[in-house]
């Protein structure tokens, strides 16, 4: 997979902590102090209760494959066929990602399989959180 021309995200003030996290090899989520719920994508308030009292924390990295498609058409930066997946983190939030170190087939990509993050550097500022089948050595 060539990442040279993969669309590059442009961080905003509200998402900076997430991108600083992936750069440091961490998946940083936010949670609401009063209602204790984790959420994603980033924003400086709780989407469940509207409260502004929120904190950033490091997610466990434990995730499961929630759903996906295997794309068969050419897209700059990708070699088809490749899976576009949604993973569900142990803390609750879901995020889009790619599944690496795994054949891109329906047989290999089994829903609910356990995953762990892999941090893929694009450039000095941007590192993406991809996922791979869990190797059993995660907490």
């Amino acid at each position: 997979m060539s990442d040279a021309k993969r669309p590059r995200p442009l961080p905003t003030p509200e998402t900076q902590h997430f991108w600083e996290g992936t750069r440091a090899g961490e998946l940083r989520l936010q949670r609401c102090r009063p209602c204790a719920r984790a959420y994603f994508p980033p924003r400086p308030f709780c989407p469940h209760c509207g409260g502004r009292e929120v904190e950033v924390f490091v997610a466990s990295g434990q995730a499961r494959l929630y759903s996906y498609v295997i794309h068969h058409r050419a897209v700059p930066g990708f070699t088809p066929p490749y899976a576009i997946a949604v993973v569900e983190l142990a803390e609750g939030p879901r995020m889009m990602s790619n599944i690496v170190d795994c054949p891109q087939t329906p047989e290999a990509l089994v829903l609910d399989m356990q995953l762990e993050p892999v941090f893929e550097r694009m450039d000095d500022e941007i590192t993406l959180a991809l996922f791979r089948p869990a190797r059993g050595d995660t907490p």
């Binding site: 993969r6 669309p7 995200p9 961080p11 058409r73 990708f78 790619n98």
Partner: peptide, 10 residues
């Protein structure tokens, strides 16, 4: 743009 497009949807 930040949290979906980098993963190759078209």
């Amino acid at each position: 743009g930040q949290f979906e497009l980098p993963f190759g949807p078209m």
